[in-house]
Amino acid sequence: MEEVKGGSSSSAIRSSNIGFQLLKKCGWTEGTGLGVAEQGRLEPIQVHAKNDKQGLGSRKINNNNKNKRHQLLRDSTSKDNEAKKKAKALSKRAKKLQEQEKKLQDKEFERAFFREFWPDNV
């Protein structure tokens, strides 16, 4: 038996779940995010537990492998593949948006950083 860490992936909540149904009753549509423009993130945040003292960047966690396993797990458990596909298409769009946002954030960070340390520059 494998210990699943709280931060690692596991299968998504199924549509038979009462919480799933209650959220639908609140007006949620599968495959969309929350928020005024339904712009919210689709997947919960995944964090990998770190249990050693290895420094930052000293060992790249093999993300690709993890994702693959995750995918397999999901495929084997998912019943409604169609909804999944829809979600995928949407998440692609969301990814693009996220990337764009990330770029913007990075830029802003840089600007803020300089503003902060060299206030005279502003």
Binding site: I13, L22, L34
Partner: peptide, 12 residues
């Protein structure tokens, strides 16, 4: 906005 699943759990 939080992920839909987080809200599902809360409602559940």
């Amino acid at each position: 906005p939080p992920a839909p699943e987080t809200l599902m759990r809360a409602l559940e």
